[in-house]
Write a protein that binds this DNA or RNA. Structure first.
Lengths: 114, 114
DNA sequence: AATCAATACGTAGGATAACTAGCTATTGCG
DNA sequence: CGCAATAGCTAGTTATCCTACGTATTGATT
């Protein structure tokens, strides 16, 4: 695995849920939305995106439905009620997490060494 | 595995390096510093901390040395030059990552759906 | 006409990270 | 005496994200 890979480090689910926050999208569109919405930083391989969507669907956080547009089959996903709640919780969780990490990285100096 | 576990999700290394930023510490003291410095949020099990320190040492980012204090053996770690550089890079990397995630989570609305 | 990029979906298998659960040992407090 | 805190450790499990691959269609380029 490339060293700079696994850039998401466990925060993929909340990003996928957030990409569905203001309406349904299909998998490929989610991938593009995350790429564009992150300035290219989250350009996820399909081998990351699709299995993750299946996982979220199995967990009941998103619901998918097939359609065909311009001869291409699509699976569109929308947030379920549980997904909305999960997103709200994970958003708050992210803020706490980010604040804790930032606090440690910017700490100067550290509490007295024993 | 507890679901709320793996809270660190790949950000452990930079936290450990940061805990050594202003001087050497031994493993248990690093664990305490992260717990206290995060308001209790990062209360890591020793099964997380010690293997991670060994990994960082193998990677040449920290250097350890044994000592005995009050009848207890300790392994103190200090940042190597490579570790200092790594810490600086990872700090910058964290800021970018956090900004990208926050940008997506707070985006409202998303760019036009295709 | 042929080819290729982009769109759109998917799976199999591997690498790695963080965790649980267990262990040894000492100091000091109730 | 027992227990919490201090101090170190490993084996094995699990989840996640990735690489690499496969299928198929549309539309642009050659």
């Amino acid at each position: 695995m490339r060293p700079e890979a696994q850039a998401l480090k466990g925060h993929l689910d909340v990003l996928l849920l957030a990409a569905l926050a203001d309406g349904p999208r299909h998998g490929y569109a989610i991938k593009e939305a995350l790429r564009d919405g992150s300035g290219g930083r989250f350009d996820l391989p399909t081998g990351t995106v699709y299995p993750a969507l299946h996982r979220l669907e199995r967990a009941g956080l998103i619901a998918g439905s097939w359609s065909v547009v311009d001869g291409r089959r699509r699976r569109s996903y929308r947030l379920t009620d549980a997904g909305e709640r999960k997103l709200a919780g994970e958003r708050a969780n992210w803020r706490e997490f980010a604040q804790a990490v930032t606090g440690i990285l910017e700490r100067d100096p550290w509490p007295a060494t024993s």
